[in-house]
């Protein structure tokens, strides 16, 4: 059984947020839901201002508070380390969201079809450009059930009144592909691989680079390692936050 982990090289990230877009396309997340999010930070005062970026997927914690608190076992940790949500079991109590210190959970406050960026009604204009299909596209892989229990866990499945979050693109990982954010980063900030395999790229990176994990002091034991950099101090200011606002 592999032990999946992700590394994020902070010295490379330039804050372009391509990973956020890749995630949106791959997982079809509704408006204002950012399963992958890139903080843009500003530190110190002019003229010493420093701007830096920190991508924030779900940390797929080994000691995940969200898994512990889920009353019905809808949020669970697979043996390979992925922390997933069973969208058919979740009752929408949002306890996982409250318990997670990283703020990576997004609840479907309204019907996801009504929460997409565009109103995809049968628009001939759109159809003329999309080869006669109407977005949002449904990735058939997302309909598959994964793991020994065959639970419905892949993204792109959105139901009203349940929680959603980064899945490490379980439907891609199961096929041997990298998560969408990893594959789409133009400067290869992310690496994804097996910690148990000493030759995997994440193992090598971790051996050769200084690294930290976010909010390690909370005891959550994240599976996402940040290379070359420091955790955000309480003094950093977030600039250009997304306009999530009150849309839900």
């Amino acid at each position: 059984m592999p032990r999946y982990a992700m590394t994020i090289d902070l010295s490379r990230c330039m804050g372009c947020r391509a990973c956020m877009v890749a995630c949106k396309v791959e997982n079809n997340t509704p408006e204002a839901h950012f399963w992958m999010y890139v903080f843009r930070f500003e530190e110190e005062e002019y003229p010493k201002t420093r701007v830096w970026f920190l991508p924030r997927p779900c940390q797929h914690c080994d000691n995940a508070p969200c898994v512990k608190v889920c009353p019905v076992g809808a949020r669970y940790k697979r043996d390979d380390g992925l922390v997933l949500t069973d969208f058919q079991r979740c009752i929408g109590c949002r306890y996982c969201e409250v318990a997670c210190p990283y703020g990576v959970n997004y609840f479907h406050w309204k019907h996801p079809d009504k929460a997409q960026y565009l109103d995809y009604t049968d628009d001939p204009e759109v159809k003329s450009r999309t080869n006669n299909t109407m977005p949002p596209y449904r990735n058939p892989d997302a309909d598959l059930r994964y793991g020994p229990e065959e639970r419905l866990t892949a993204g792109a499945h959105h139901y009203r009144g349940v929680i959603g979050k980064c899945t490490f693109c379980v439907h891609r990982v199961e096929k041997g592909l990298e998560p969408a954010c990893v594959a789409n980063c133009p400067v290869r900030v992310f690496e994804f691989g097996d910690l148990d395999d000493p030759n995997s790229i994440v193992s090598q990176k971790l051996r050769t680079n200084p690294h930290f994990r976010l909010l390690e002091e909370e005891g959550t034991k994240p599976r996402v390692y940040y290379l070359m950099g420091n955790p955000p101090s309480p003094e950093v200011r977030q600039v250009m936050p997304v306009k999530g606002g009150k849309r839900g």
Partner: peptide, 14 residues
């Protein structure tokens, strides 16, 4: 849906 309430996600949604 719960959008009718004043509740939203904490984090990016504020």
């Amino acid at each position: 849906g719960p959008i009718a309430t004043g509740l939203r996600d904490w984090g990016t949604m504020g």
